[in-house]
């Protein structure tokens, strides 16, 4: 499966991914390393730095957000309705072709 990502520079990339991976892990392995901040908690939904915007039309394909993820996004002034923390989006077959944009560094 593939994920289409727009980097902070505006550059677009198609990233190879596999079901079961987290969206963050797939992005990092596929050359979108900027999603992994210096202040990262290591991908356990505790720091809020791996913030991405998911294409509106892809939102229904994503699993629901936990209250922990919601808490971390709560304080961000760059949060939008389509904000997610990429560590907390487990990929599944139905997400092929997902389009995401890395949010600004915070």
């Amino acid at each position: 499966m593939r994920i289409n990502v727009t980097l902070r520079s505006g550059e677009q990339k198609a990233v190879e991914a596999s079901p079961g991976q987290s969206l963050k892990a797939a992005l990092m392995a596929g050359g979108a390393g900027e999603v992994d901040a210096l202040t990262s908690c290591g991908g356990c939904c505790s720091c809020g730095t791996c913030h991405v915007y998911v294409d509106e039309s892809d939102m229904p394909r994503l699993p629901a957000m936990s209250s922990q993820e919601d808490d971390l996004l709560f304080v961000r002034d760059d949060r939008r309705a389509n904000s997610r923390l990429s560590c907390s989006v487990p990929l599944s077959e139905g997400m092929d072709g997902l389009r995401v944009t890395i949010a600004p560094e915070w």
Binding site: T39, C44, G48, D71, L72, L73, V75, R76
Partner: peptide, 14 residues
């Protein structure tokens, strides 16, 4: 501990 922790962390990290 998580999950209680996240909101408090976010308030400081901001």
């Amino acid at each position: 501990d998580p999950p209680e922790h996240a909101g408090y962390r976010a308030a400081l990290m901001k």
